[in-house]
């Protein structure tokens, strides 16, 4: 029983990281209908900036700088894509794959053999909660995810941008006809998505992970089942999806010897199995907006 509890805590802690990554994808998708495959390299860019700046300026200043740099990177992608006016979202998503290849190649070259440390204030410290141990860094990640989610909900509800965003995501054409400036919605979405990437990049490189290395950006791929599970355009879906994936991974890894018949390392495949199962049941994820076809 304690083992199950421990593994659930591990899953929750891992899930918080996935949730944070997934939220970045979702915000950008909600505002622009583009799945940003370059999100992984944006994570790495943010973490890389923090790791390089922190030794001289300290963690918090570096984190701020990292966010600025990543937001700038996201905006660059946003304006690049805007040049392709009139393209469909599939083509734009593919374009972000191109951006990802370029950015990852350059970051890999720069990071080299190193494992870069974030020099974050949490270090390897942990908190004991009801018999289970949770790393402080992950508690901070959870706090960031919850605060961002709260802020977003408030933004959606009380600001003009939020209304515009909701309108744009419900029906872009109608929103545009009503005078909503979709360009601004897109810009703000990319900025938030970029900032979330920087945050997620930091937490993916802090304890219990060792730091940032040249493989790091692939972790964003592991968040994709989380996004699909929750629904591409649902922020709270991202959190639910992230935690589900984290739990699934932790439990399959923890009970690996009992699940031996599925083949070693099934924990890595489990999220994808869950994802396909959910999609067969609900084709737009658990909380995603369903597509209706009107004739």
């Amino acid at each position: 029983m304690t083992r199950l509890l421990e593994l659930l805590a591990v899953g929750l802690s891992l899930g918080m990281l996935y949730a944070l990554i997934a939220m970045g994808f979702v915000i950008i998708y909600k505002g622009t209908r583009v799945v940003n495959f370059a999100q992984g390299s944006l994570l790495a860019l943010g973490a890389y900036a923090v790791a390089r700046i922190a030794p001289s300026a300290g963690f918090w200043a570096a984190a701020a700088a990292g966010i600025v740099i990543t937001v700038a990177g996201a905006l660059l992608i946003r304006f690049l894509l805007a040049r392709a006016r009139g393209h469909d979202h599939m083509a734009l998503a593919i374009a972000t794959i191109g951006v990802d290849v370029v950015l990852t190649t350059e970051l890999t070259r720069r990071i080299g053999p190193d494992v870069l440390s974030m020099l974050d204030p949490w270090g390897a410290a942990t908190v004991r909660l009801g018999g289970v141990t949770v790393p402080q860094a992950r508690i901070a990640a959870m706090a960031v995810a919850v605060v961002v989610l709260g802020l977003l909900l408030a933004l959606f509800r009380y600001t003009g941008w939020g209304v515009a965003m909701r309108a744009a995501s419900a029906d872009a054409e109608a929103a545009s006809l009503m005078g909503i400036r979709l360009g601004r919605v897109a810009t703000v979405s990319w900025m938030i998505g970029g900032a979330l990437a920087a945050g997620a990049g930091v937490f993916m490189s802090t304890f219990p992970s060792a730091g940032l290395d040249s493989h790091s950006s692939t972790i964003a791929l592991a968040a994709i089942p989380a996004i699909i599970l929750g629904g591409l355009d649902s922020t709270h879906g991202a959190i639910v999806g992230g935690v589900t994936v984290g739990m699934a991974k932790a439990l399959t890894a923890g009970y690996g010897s009992e699940l031996g018949f599925l083949g070693a390392g099934f924990g890595d495949v489990m999220p994808y199995v869950l994802m396909v199962a959910v999609l067969m049941w609900r084709p737009s994820g658990l909380f995603g907006t369903r597509e209706f076809i009107r004739v």
């Binding site: 006016r85 009139g86 393209h87």
Partner: peptide, 14 residues
């Protein structure tokens, strides 16, 4: 000719 919906408002910049 690739998938080209006549116009695509969500991604167009202002």
């Amino acid at each position: 000719h690739p998938v080209l919906p006549p116009q695509d408002m969500t991604t167009a910049s202002s």
